[in-house]
Amino acid sequence: MFDEIDPRNPIPLYDQIAARIRLAVASGDLAEGDALPSVRQLAARLRINPATVVQAYRALEREGFVEMRQGSGTYVRSVSTDRRRQTREDQAARLARDLLTEAARLGIAGTEVARALQREMGARAQ
């Protein structure tokens, strides 16, 4: 689940981790009551600062995605269907923005990208 965490990406690491977990909840990969890895486990596995993991978990707790239980661990909370859909939409919008920014950098117009996207989707549907 955390394979695509990239320290060279300008998005802060804690944000990348939080986004990954948010999406896992939104897509149903993580269900209510599931335990997240401990701070120690995840920090060691990703070889990152434990404080970064804590920062990610705190952000998720503020947003209501998880609950940190003292001395026990961090658990996924119940998240409404609407909220899950909204999270997926936000992520899709972010991907689209990144794609358009990258295209503009290469001198490709938005309409060309949209057409290419339609074609690719058609190719996949077949």
Binding site: P7, R40, A43, R45, R47, I48, N49, P50
Partner: peptide, 30 residues
């Protein structure tokens, strides 16, 4: 690095680390 981070998670110790492996530091340093 995993052993180092495991120790830091548990103890909260300070780490002062010099290296040329910039990408490694990018992951772990604050």
């Amino acid at each position: 690095l995993m052993a180092l981070i495991d120790f830091v998670s548990e103890s909260g110790a300070t780490v002062f680390i010099s290296s040329h492996l910039v990408h490694e530091l990018e992951r772990i340093c604050d």
